[in-house]
Amino acid sequence: MPVEPYDEEGDPEPGTHPMQYRHALTGGEGCIAQARHHATDFLTRLLDDHGLDVSPRAMDVTQLVVSELVTNALKYAPGPVLMELRHSGTTVVVVVWDSEPTVPAARAPDPDRIGQHGLEIVKAVTQDLDIQRQTVGKRITARITLTDTHDTRITTRP
């Protein structure tokens, strides 16, 4: 089993050189689209520069998760939002930090409710979702499997 580049607290393991990307989001026009674009670029670099298998599902799910988490952070938290993407073994890790300490909770199913399904969606499509209150704000960490046995893997860029 390969050594994971991050330990359980999300810190780099000694002697590893994990690939990661960090960006502060201001909430301006196009911010959410920009976050999705950064996620796509990150996964494309894993594929092209590092030769890792990345499934079409991983591409789509990562963009969806980034969009949902960043949208919620910008909607409910005052101040900046920080997004981090990193490669960890067979997963891509999406971390979104915001200044609002309230931990979100998935709501009970309601077929008449319009909207507010983001956390339910993220929980359904990720391998793992962790929400931690921080000294200031909160950190939401989602792990998405890079490959999927149901998808054809992308091995070269078109």
Rank of each mutant, 00 (worst) to 15 (best):
M1G: 14
M1A: 15
V3Y: 08
E4K: 11
E13W: 09
G15W: 10
P18E: 13
Y21R: 09
T26M: 01
E29N: 12
G30V: 13
D41W: 07
L43N: 01
T44M: 08
L46H: 02
L46T: 04
D48V: 15
G51K: 07
D53A: 15
D53W: 07
V54A: 08
V54R: 01
P56A: 05
M59Q: 05
D60Q: 14
V65D: 01
V66G: 11
V66A: 13
E68A: 10
E68F: 02
V70L: 04
A73K: 02
A77L: 06
P80T: 15
V81D: 01
M83P: 04
L85V: 14
R86Y: 08
V94Q: 00
V94R: 00
V96G: 02
D98R: 01
E100H: 07
V103F: 01
P104I: 01
A105L: 08
A108E: 13
R113P: 07
Q116L: 09
H117K: 13
H117N: 13
L119Y: 06
I121D: 03
K123G: 15
T126E: 05
Q127D: 14
D130R: 11
I140G: 06
T141A: 08
R143W: 07
I144T: 10
L146T: 03
T147K: 01
D148M: 08
T149Q: 03
D151V: 06
T152F: 02
T156I: 11
P158Q: 05
